[in-house]
Computed example of a mutant assay.
Amino acid sequence: MTICGQIVREFCDLMVSRDAEKLRPFFADDAVYQNTGTPATVGVEAIVTNLAGQFGTFPDSYEYKTINLAADGNVVLTERLDLIRTPSGVQGVPVMGTFVLENGKITRWTDYWDTSLPMKMMTGQDVSALVPAIY
């Protein structure tokens, strides 16, 4: 695995700590983080604040389960299940992520996912057909 791949895997594995400050060192000062369909979060301060807010929204569960990771130069692609606690228990939101690194720091992070899926999960809808089996 490339060094960029190792950095992104470590970053994703650290999500279980639910501590945005522990993630701060992974970002370049002017990094950009964006979930599809939402405005970009620009700058490490704003990204750390954003992540802290996500952890607060799901106070007792937050973890990334990396299914696949591919790295080509300074670009790393992840296929993940982002685990959250719902009334039905812990469920995984399928996410494809793109990370771009420069000098060992994340400069751009874009996640692609169905932004309506967590609300369906939180309201108890059966989403089993929408979440791929882990292989």
Rank of each mutant, 00 (worst) to 15 (best):
Leu101Pro: 07
Ile7Asp: 07
Arg18Pro: 01
Asp82Thr: 12
Ile106Pro: 04
Trp113Asn: 13
Asp29Ala: 12
Tyr33Pro: 01
Cys4Gln: 11
Ala52Thr: 04
Ile106Thr: 07
Pro118Ile: 05
Leu117Arg: 11
Pro39Trp: 06
Glu79Ala: 02
Gly56Asp: 10
Gln34Lys: 13
Gly53Glu: 05
Glu63Asp: 14
Pro59Leu: 12
Ser61His: 09
Ile134Cys: 05
Pro59Asp: 10
Pro118Met: 06
Ile84Gly: 00
Phe58Gln: 00
Glu79Thr: 03
Phe27Trp: 10
Thr41Ala: 09
Thr66Tyr: 02
Met1Thr: 10
Asn74Lys: 10
Lys65Thr: 12
Trp113Met: 15
Phe11Asn: 01
Asp30Met: 05
Thr2Asn: 15
Asp19Leu: 05
Arg80Gln: 11
Ala71Leu: 00
Val16His: 11
Asp13Pro: 01
Cys12Phe: 03
Ala20Asn: 09
Phe99Pro: 08
Ser88His: 01
Gln34Tyr: 06
Gly124Phe: 03
Ser61Leu: 08
Met119Asn: 08
Cys12Trp: 01
Ile106Cys: 07
Thr41Leu: 08
Leu81Arg: 11
Asn103Thr: 01
Thr86Ile: 07
Glu79Gly: 00
Trp109Arg: 03
Thr36Glu: 12
Val75Ile: 15
Gly5Phe: 12
Gln54Arg: 01
Phe58Lys: 00
Met119Thr: 08
Tyr62Glu: 02
Ile7Lys: 08
Thr49Leu: 14
Val131Gly: 07
Ala40Arg: 13
Thr49Pro: 03
Pro94Arg: 03
Val93Asn: 08
Arg18Glu: 05
Pro59Trp: 09
Asp13His: 04
Leu83Trp: 00
